[in-house]
Amino acid sequence: MTVAKLLISVCAFCVMSEQVVAGEASICTPKDSVQVESSVSKVRDWRGVYASFRANRACNAETVVEVWAAYSQIVARLFANHWDKSNDFFRLASEHADFKNFVVKHLADETIPEDVLQVIRVHARSSCSYGFETMCKEIDGATR
């Protein structure tokens, strides 16, 4: 084996090891997808969304359609029907930008009905908690 091939192998191993240590396994099997979709559909609050987001990183990509749609539905439902609990989201999002970006990106999902998006926009514009105005603007913008 040449030195160049050895270095490439070592670098690839380091990157893969770093992903596993960070909890970012890169493979979501069909079985995983079904289990994650089922668990996401049972989430009832922002702490649950966050815990699921952290635990299921391999299946959180847009390419895992069923899981993506399940997350989009819970995100939309929490913002539309439980805005009074949105401070839980804002606190988590303030500490974890990757989680905030994940949630906001779900608001652009085409599967969320327009009337639900309208309710979320109204909440974001008229009922935003002090200190979280920037995030409310992001939420409002993502629903357009």
Rank of each mutant, 00 (worst) to 15 (best):
V3Y: 07
A4E: 15
A4W: 07
L6R: 12
L7D: 11
S9N: 13
C11S: 13
C14S: 10
S17F: 15
S17V: 10
E18C: 12
A22L: 15
G23K: 07
E24A: 13
E24F: 10
A25D: 10
A25S: 12
S26E: 08
I27E: 13
P30F: 09
D32G: 02
S33M: 06
Q35E: 15
Q35A: 15
E37G: 14
E37S: 12
D45K: 02
W46V: 04
R47V: 00
V49F: 09
V49I: 15
Y50G: 04
S52L: 08
F53W: 15
R57W: 10
A58Y: 01
A58T: 00
C59S: 07
C59A: 07
N60H: 03
A61E: 08
V64F: 10
V65F: 11
A69T: 09
A70C: 03
S72R: 00
Q73I: 00
Q73H: 01
A76S: 08
A76R: 01
L78Y: 00
H82M: 05
W83P: 00
N87W: 08
E95T: 01
A97K: 15
F99H: 05
F102K: 08
K105M: 08
H106F: 00
L107P: 02
L107F: 00
A108K: 11
E110H: 06
I112H: 03
E114I: 11
D115G: 03
L117E: 10
Q118P: 01
I120D: 12
I120E: 13
V122H: 06
V122G: 00
F132V: 06
C136G: 06
E138N: 02
E138I: 03
G141I: 00
A142M: 02
A142R: 05
